[in-house]
């Protein structure tokens, strides 16, 4: 079947670059293991862009990393986003890391992302309500061809919630014992943009630098806290992990808690106040003595 959406995307990117609407565009290209980021500056290279059901990467993190971070001030940057990726862009806007007028967003109508292991549509796609991204500069794809993606996007999180406390402890300690502290999860996260991470601080040293079990647990706990009310559940952290730690199960558990207790979903409102930087008089306090 002809990939009309991809053809249209390439056409539009060529136009945008030719007209100078954007100077550089970041989209998906082909790599050894499927899909990888592709920077396009020359309109002729728009042909190398791809779009298909394997375009899992959330490219928003590149907005706050080299080299795009440096060109952000002057140039207009084009970025290809799925509805879910757009949430991460919104958090970056909310936190004043990105100026909306400096980016040109091409939203892709999305029918869900297939897992690379062949186990069907990714858990994160279930119940998606942003298959047609709203609020981007343009949308590519035909909303008529959408099929709804059913299921529970927190199934893996709930599986752990159903465990007893000792079972959870043993699950996390055995899983986190594999962590080698390569920080791929942090570097892949579109919202871990601190110039200096708490893991790099040694006066005082809050987190053990060594990949000991206590150091690993502290790192992942504190990282999860730093993403509370911010994580958009894109799953980049787990995708990047070389030793298969389901890092996003931690951050998505917190996202679920915040959704259920505070009715707050990160990235839905770029104009609102960040979750942990705000409060309501009647926030839940049933856990306080």
């Amino acid at each position: 079947m002809k990939n009309e959406q991809e053809a249209q995307l390439r056409r539009r990117v060529r136009e945008l670059l030719n007209r100078g609407t954007v100077e550089v565009l970041l989209g998906y290209g082909r790599g050894l293991t499927g899909v990888r980021p592709l920077f396009v500056r020359d309109p002729a290279n728009a042909e190398k862009l791809i779009w298909n059901e394997h375009c899992n990467l959330n490219l928003a993190g590149y907005l706050v990393r080299e080299p795009l971070k440096q060109v952000m001030a002057g140039a207009r940057i084009g970025l290809i986003v799925k509805g879910c990726d757009f949430r991460a862009v919104n958090v970056l806007i909310q936190e004043h890391q990105v100026e909306r007028q400096n980016i040109y967003l091409i939203g892709m109508v999305c029918n869900g992302i297939e897992s690379d292991s062949g186990s069907g549509i990714l858990i994160k796609c279930r119940g998606c309500n942003v298959q047609v991204p709203e609020g981007t500069d343009e949308v590519i794809g035909n909303p008529q061809e959408l099929r709804q993606i059913d299921g529970d996007p927190f199934e893996d999180v709930r599986a752990i919630m159903e465990m007893s406390l000792p079972e959870r402890w043993s699950f996390w300690t055995s899983t986190l014992s594999r962590c080698i502290k390569c920080y791929a999860c942090r570097q892949a996260c579109p919202l871990c943009y601190c110039e200096e991470c708490i893991t790099e601080k040694s006066r005082p040293q809050w987190i053990e630098k060594a990949p000991t079990l206590s150091g690993n647990l502290a790192y992942h706990f504190i990282r999860t806290m730093h993403l509370a009310g911010r994580c958009v559940a894109c799953g980049e952290c787990s995708r990047a992990c070389p030793v298969d730690i389901p890092v996003d199960v931690l951050t998505r558990f917190v996202a679920l808690t915040i959704k259920e207790r505070f009715d707050y979903v990160a990235g839905d409102e770029p104009d609102g106040k960040p979750f942990l930087a705000s409060y309501c008089e009647d926030d839940p306090d049933d856990f306080i003595k």
Binding site: L165, W169, S170, W172, V254, I258, E281, D283, F287, I288
Partner: peptide, 26 residues
Amino acid sequence: LSARRRFLVMKQLLEFMGIEPERFEV
């Protein structure tokens, strides 16, 4: 009030990782 939100999340997360809720009180 800002801390209240953070404490709720912390308490839940500690429990999610298997730590008895009694070990963190607010």
